[in-house]
Computed example of a mutant assay.
Amino acid sequence: MVKRMILKLKPQAEEISQNKAKTDKLLKKAKSKRRKSKFPLQSGVENFTLLFHALKSWRSGEYPHFPKKSVILITAGILYFVTPIDLIPDFLFGIGLLDDAAVLAFVVNEISKDLAEYKEWKDNKI
């Protein structure tokens, strides 16, 4: 089911990832929603943070090494997070962000090799 949700968002994610202004707008929305949201699981926070920073680093040109497929998947995952229409509505206390966390975990799993390389680059940069 998660894979289907990502595939549904893929065309929109591709369009967003090809436009810097739209990518910036998505990142801004995601940051704002994250500040207001309480993930029920720590892994949801970690996955969101990793994907957010990865897209931001790619967008700025600081880390241009992500394959196009990975950028689209990251964008789709973050897009799902900010989209108000979810499998489980976000306003349901305690469980509303479980579907968001599942989508983000799916994206992390799908592009784990690329994210591992990004994390290594990020850790060595400091």
Score class of each variant (00 low, 15 high):
S43L: 11
N47D: 15
V108Y: 01
F81I: 08
D24I: 02
I88D: 07
N19P: 07
W121Y: 08
D123T: 04
Y63K: 03
D114H: 11
T75P: 11
S32D: 10
I16D: 06
S60T: 10
I111W: 00
S37K: 03
P67E: 15
T83A: 12
G61F: 07
T75I: 09
I78W: 00
L97A: 02
P89A: 04
K8W: 13
E14Q: 15
E110T: 05
K31R: 12
G77H: 10
I95M: 05
A101L: 04
V82G: 01
Y63T: 06
P67S: 11
E62M: 08
T49N: 08
I111Q: 00
A54G: 05
K56F: 01
E110S: 10
L27D: 03
E62D: 12
A76N: 07
D86P: 04
V103D: 02
L9C: 11
A13K: 04
P11G: 12
I126D: 04
D86V: 01
D24L: 09
L26N: 03
A76L: 09
K33R: 15
G96S: 11
I74T: 09
K68Q: 15
A54D: 03
P40A: 04
S112E: 11
K68S: 14
K8A: 15
E110Q: 13
F106K: 07
D90N: 10
F93D: 07
L79W: 06
L50A: 03
E110V: 02
K10V: 13
L97F: 02
D123C: 00
D86W: 07
A30R: 00
L79I: 10
E15V: 10
A76W: 05
T83C: 05
F81Q: 06
V45E: 14
K22D: 11
P84K: 13
W121Q: 03
K113S: 14
L51E: 02
P40T: 06
P11I: 14
I74L: 09
W58C: 02
E14I: 08
T49L: 06
E14Y: 11
E15P: 03
E14M: 14
I16L: 08
G94M: 07
G77Y: 05
Y118S: 02
F52V: 00
F106S: 08
E15S: 15
